[in-house]
Amino acid sequence: MGKTADLTAVQKAIIDTLKQEGKTQKDISERIGCSQSAVSRHRSGKSVGRKKCGRKRCTTRRGDRTLRKIVEKDRFQTLGDLQKKWTESGVETSRPTVYRRVQEMGYRCHIPQVKPLLNQKQRQKRLTWATEKQHWTVAQWSKVLFSDESNFCMSFGNQGARVWRKTGEREMPTCLKSSVKYPQSVMVWGAMSAAGVGPLCFIKGRVNAASYQEILEHFMLPSAEKLYGDEDFIFQHDLAPAHSAKTTGKWFTDHGITVLNWPANSPDLSPIENLWDIVKRKLRDARPNTLDELKAAIEASWASITPQQCHRLIASMPRRMEAVISAKGFPTKY
């Protein structure tokens, strides 16, 4: 039987018990799965832990704490920056050692999430808004018709594509990914509620107050009719200039539609943003090559969204309020 690792406390206790029962050294070793010499060393009191192999750790706990403070002071530093500042603090070490220590602390290098910049006033408004709405039920949120615009780029479906090639084929035409300076794109308006989604509107040109009111007239009202029928609803949109124009406000007043007050720079609070992400993920498989194909793929992806998906997103609204309150107005994971 080969050598084994150091005996555990349980194995040592078993050896003592079996020895008292009169078992032989061979029987004991077979019983606990170790060598006879390990049993003998334990019985003779010569069983000691193995000496640690490898090079001695070149940094101290105090030095490691210093590195942690350096990392937490600025999370966007490169490995070279961390090494330089750690050296300046009195710890001479290599880049690989810095990397290992950072890994030991639980840090991993990731692509950062991109969130809108929020100033103190905006964070306070988000916090106040979430506090006011924290007791809203899912039934109350189901009365809200969420809307938004999103831009879809022609090259979107090819982002992240990989190619199989051999050494020396880097510049081969069949292995190249084409790019254009100004790729074609389309702006889309849509609306959703707990009951499902409304019809899409493909926007031509820039959105101003007049064109936005046309969208409301020809697409928002049909969406509300489809999703709510004769029931009352609350309309939601963000604070884009066309949305917050006085003439747009008058349009809502004339039509007797209640508009939900909304904090600025808060896409994480709108569940329709999650639907746009779903559509864009599906476009990666569609890979449209023309503007008409892009529009067709968007419409097909939008039509495939089920009422169940929409209801789950609306049901997340109370949790979104809790997240904003916990984050004290800062961006959340949603």
Rank of each mutant, 00 (worst) to 15 (best):
R319K: 12
S301H: 01
P307C: 08
N265K: 11
H311K: 14
W262G: 00
R312T: 06
P263W: 00
R284G: 06
F235Q: 00
T248P: 06
D292W: 11
D238Q: 09
N265H: 10
R284P: 07
Q236E: 04
I278Y: 09
I298S: 08
T253G: 13
S301G: 05
R284T: 07
L283G: 06
Q309C: 01
I314W: 03
L313C: 11
P241I: 10
D238M: 03
A297S: 15
K250I: 13
I314Q: 04
F252N: 01
A264Y: 12
I305P: 00
Q236K: 01
N274W: 06
D277Q: 09
A296R: 15
R284K: 14
C310H: 00
D277M: 05
E293F: 05
L294V: 00
K246S: 15
N289W: 00
A245V: 12
E231N: 14
I234Y: 07
L283F: 07
K295Q: 13
I272W: 12
D232R: 14
T253A: 03
L260Q: 07
I298W: 06
Q236D: 10
T248W: 05
L313A: 11
T247N: 11
P288V: 11
D277G: 11
A315Y: 03
I234F: 02
D285A: 14
L260P: 01
A300V: 02
D268K: 10
I234C: 09
L275D: 02
S301Y: 04
M317K: 05
A296P: 02
W251Q: 05
A303E: 13
R284M: 03
P288D: 15
K250D: 15
D254A: 09
T248S: 07
L313G: 02
A286W: 00
I234H: 02
L294I: 01
G249C: 11
G256S: 07
T253D: 07
I305L: 01
F233T: 08
N261H: 15
H243L: 09
L294K: 00
A242L: 13
K250N: 15
I278V: 12
P271I: 01
N274F: 05
E231C: 10
R312L: 12
L239V: 12
S270H: 08
N289S: 14
Q308K: 15
A240I: 07
P307N: 11
D254T: 05
S244V: 15
